[in-house]
Design a protein around this nucleic acid. Structure first.
Lengths: 231, 231
DNA sequence: GTAAACAAAAGTGTTGACAGTTTCGCGGCA
DNA sequence: TGCCGCGAAACTGTCAACACTTTTGTTTAC
């Protein structure tokens, strides 16, 4: 990635001297939490982070407040911030939401997005992706899957929807990988995406919505079945 | 173990002398913005608010940061915070979202909620509410409508969904009233709620979802038709 | 009379210092 | 030895002063 953070400052050439902004700290912490680089339940000490980022403590404080509002950390008065530990019920809540929200995204993307793109994605999921799943190469599979997901959300052209999906998706991002490892899940998911993309290529928006919802419902069912192995 | 620290816990409902917390300031400003007590585009000066609430300016600042994250105000660097002015496209985005989200809420509430409650609401919407609409008494009608809406969301039993709906609903709250004034809209809306509640009373969850979605789609269509009179 | 330049004022952004609370270690006592 | 209380250290919460940017008001040149 490394797409440089858009610095409004006219480039003075000074690189690491510039102090990190609140947004940058938030982004960095979000990434770490999503990757479970900082595990759930871990304490986040303001002084440590301040020193690490080379900023005053109040700035870290603002960042933690933002993360709290996004539901990624919990702040207990006088006792600091800990990475939110999501319980099972919340995971199911989120899947119920993803079902309708990503369904909406699929419908809108079908109506508004460029069909050639979906055709290309369809080829990808029918060909190369099938091999990846067969060989159990999950990392590149996940990468392509998330790229498609982002494409659909972007093509939907509804910023408020995009923001919402971003908020809830980042909470379960760490789980996705574990679900995909479940026996047979990856291949089932691939087939469902093929079906989804076929509907999108044909411009059948309602059908695309229905199929996306179906796909997420089945993912949730898998999760329910194997929950003891995941949490 | 639970030996209470004698003075550490400030009781929640303190006297009016205690300085307002960030959460209280946020709530107060949210209410004013929703009621258009502070109109869109108005500037919010930190010093003024600090003096009004009797708190240091930094606390107002934190509150404004929270409101910015909720999308209620826009903060321009070095120029202050102004109440977000929502453009038409965003309103339609929000209605697309409400369509699927409140549809989900209706389905879940039908599955999980107490049927007696829906029966009572149905009686209300078939009887007294009809009179209110006929007499054009919109204020009490809106009040009851919002109470039903909250009931459904609460009965859905999905806190993440509730939070989301809260976030987007408060942005359009000021508009709802204007939509209801549109010719025939209130009565159509009432009839749609009767249909919705009938499905809920019968325990037909999917039908309830479908009908709620239909209702919001038609509200959006009305909005589209009369947009010039509203914005 | 108009407009550009400058100075003062108002408002926002930032920071380090101070205060309050919790946690941890240590010494005394049964 | 166990543990109870006490005090110090670590950490979070709060704030008022300082620095910087934008806006406004005034003067001056054409």
């Amino acid at each position: 990635m490394a797409r440089a953070a858009p610095k409004s400052r006219p480039a003075a050439g000074r690189t690491r001297r510039s102090p990190a902004s609140v947004a940058q700290i938030v982004a960095a912490l979000r990434a770490r939490i999503a990757a479970q680089d900082i595990p759930p339940g871990a304490k986040l000490r303001e002084s440590d982070l301040a020193e690490e980022f080379g900023v005053p403590r109040t700035r870290v404080r603002d960042a933690l407040a933002a993360l709290e509002q996004r539901g990624l950390v919990e702040r207990i008065p006088n006792r600091g911030a800990v990475v939110m530990r999501l319980d099972l019920s919340q995971v199911f809540d989120i899947y119920e939401l993803r079902e309708v929200l990503e369904g909406l995204a699929a419908r809108l993307a079908t109506e508004r997005g460029p069909r050639e793109r979906w055709r290309r994605e369809l080829d990808l999921f029918q060909g190369p992706m099938k091999d990846l799943v067969a060989r159990n190469e999950l990392d590149p599979y996940i990468e392509r899957y998330e790229a498609l997901r982002r494409s659909i959300i972007e093509a939907a052209g509804n910023p408020v929807l995009a923001e919402m999906l971003d908020t809830i998706y980042e909470k379960t991002q760490a789980l996705i990988r574990r679900i995909l490892i479940l026996p047979g899940r990856a291949e089932v998911g691939r087939q469902q995406h093929v079906a989804l993309l076929e509907a999108m290529v044909q411009g059948k928006a309602e059908l695309a919505e229905q199929r996306r919802r179906e796909g997420l419902r089945s993912a949730r069912a898998h999760l329910e079945k194997f929950q003891k192995y995941i949490l």
